[in-house]
Design a protein around this nucleic acid. Structure first.
Lengths: 345, 345
DNA sequence: CTGTTAGCGCCTTCAA
DNA sequence: TTGAAGGCGCTAACAG
């Protein structure tokens, strides 16, 4: 590996001059620059970033922490973020926490040790008894932009979707279709996202004077299995709901399995509204009506915030919290309520 | 940020001693070790990796280059790799090339500059006229393990799936169902994967004495749009195939769209075999019969190879090429050939 | 416009 | 079992 001194010798200049041209901060005579450039090319010289960091305190890498990269929502967010940061020559260390806050803690201290310039954090659910960790998070020496999930309503840089609006839109849609027995399957993590979707659901029901049936509110972990089991418990109620709003991709898959096991057709026997919009959902059946989140835009916006912070400091942000709106995509998984086949209203 | 000297002062020892305990290379009296550990905790000291690199020449980070993280196959590979490397405290820089070899080149030199310890590379299709780049790749000072896609049959560390076997199994399945007019939609990149799946297809047809119809072989870019357009061209043939084998996720989505536009039902009107197995595919309709690749295992195995290389050198590998077998998952997207409804055999 | 030099934070001989 | 000191490769004053 050629280093700066090799280039300097080859070009017959000092290392300072080489440094000047690799950092293109001018003040180098055209002809010497030429010589240096040639030497660089001949030796195949690439500056050593870790060494450079020692001086500049910048690694040009940022960390991104996600709960589960195999949930297709997150790769889209990642791609959005990457497309932005690459413009500034940043690179992303991707970390999977599997919804485990301890894993998240571990990764965060590694990222700190590796001196990433900033972090995009999609939080794992906070564990009870681990509150002091949030303190530590707030005092981390590296800037963090929260994405998608907010631990508490703090004044921190964050990009989230309008989850109340999403829950509200989904539920209202079902109500307008005539449904009254509307259940919700959602995640029980102590995080903004899911709480807010539930809030939207409740708000819609209230506005239409539909009593809240607490047995229609099912919460669990964000897994396929949990979706199936909560689905079963709903299906087996004597007051079986005529529609289910499921607020999470993994649980949606699980719920659909439960329907199948029970021999229920969607939308004929039961209406479903899901969350998140993927390319296959508009092709395979039943074509799910979903609340589509601006996943890509969330990644992009978060990356832009982070870069702005890196450049001008956190106080340069016009507003720390960005809320992006979601959109109901109406497809075929919601039928009109029909009393004859289903539970009574 | 506390540094080693701060810890040393606090503990009343030299920095050498602190270094010894953080690197747990023994030869430190228990009592001094205690003091140091306390100082570390009190000061919240974390070793500075980039600085450490300067001495150790290890960054404990590896690079992973993928063509498109939003193709759900790749996140699974990523997760597999991550689950292995994290055991050794490695962290992964993830790079998306969008199937663009120039982008890949750019990322590779960044990874080199950042001094990653190794690279997992899922190649973008080689561009013609860019052959010297492969040379450069081979001489990169950082070890590379190729995953999934092989540029040429070279003697380089690689983990791939048995694509010939996959193509063969899929095609044989269709033949056994009575199909004779079997088309294939595949990717035209000059990469092993797709060439081999096509080989498997051809092999199966040959073995059953079914003539190869070159108009049934459609190749294009790995995109939804291309899947749709190639699907259309197949559907509109006067000798419309009774079955289509599509070797790629994105193109499968596209093909299904084409079927829908043409008003064709699967499997009633036409049989489809896809590639790659995702959790939703066993829930939504038509339930695709697919060749399932061991995506996760590919990631794991590749990571294991890389770690072995990092530890013992590339020559320590018992065999550089690992081929993992794929599995045909028979579901509902293939009907028995029925002459009355479809093109003549 | 160019060169010299002092670190950046850490590891690692070499001595003690 | 411990400490002192010399780099690792680079940037950024500071001189010239």
């Amino acid at each position: 590996m050629a280093k700066i001194i090799d280039v300097a010798k080859r070009a017959g200049v000092s290392i300072a001059t080489v440094s000047r041209v690799t950092n293109r901060q001018g003040n180098v005579k055209k002809s010497t620059e030429q010589k240096v450039l040639e030497a660089i090319k001949e030796l195949n010289y690439i500056p050593n970033f870790p060494a450079r960091y020692l001086k500049t305190k910048r690694t040009l890498t940022i960390g991104m922490v996600v709960p589960d990269i195999t949930n297709p929502f997150f790769p889209i967010v990642f791609r959005g973020a990457e497309s932005v940061v690459k413009q500034e020559d940043y690179t992303i260390i991707l970390c999977n926490t599997f919804e485990d806050e301890y894993e998240e803690m571990r990764y965060l201290s590694i990222l700190e040790a590796k001196k990433v310039d900033g972090i995009l954090l999609i939080k794992a659910p906070p564990r009870s008894g681990n509150e002091q960790y949030m303190q530590k998070l707030n005092n981390l020496p590296v800037p963090i932009v929260y994405v998608d999930r907010l631990p508490k309503l703090q004044d921190i840089p964050a990009v989230v979707a309008d989850n109340i609006g999403g829950g509200y839109a989904a539920t209202t849609h079902l109500i307008k279709l005539g449904h009254r027995n509307i259940a919700i399957i959602t995640v029980q993590y102590p995080l903004s996202v899911h709480r807010e979707r539930l809030q939207g659901y409740v708000k819609a029901l209230r506005e239409h004077n539909i009593p809240i049936n607490r047995f229609y509110i099912k919460q669990g972990a964000s897994t396929i299995e949990e979706g199936t089991s909560l689905g079963h418990s709903l299906i087996n109620m004597k007051d079986r709901p005529t529609a289910i709003f499921v607020t999470n991709y993994k649980m949606t898959i699980g719920l659909m399995r439960a329907l199948e096991m029970a021999g229920l057709q969607c939308p004929e026997d039961i209406s479903i509204v899901g969350y998140d919009d993927f390319e296959w959902e508009n092709v395979f059946h039943p074509r799910l009506t979903v609340v589509a989140q601006p996943a890509r835009q969330m990644g992009q916006t978060a990356a832009q915030l982070l870069i702005k912070i890196l450049r001008d400091g956190v106080d340069s942000l016009p507003n720390k919290r960005v809320i992006l709106s979601s959109e109901l995509k109406i497809r075929e998984s919601c039928g009109i309520y029909r009393q004859n086949k289903l539970g009574k209203p």
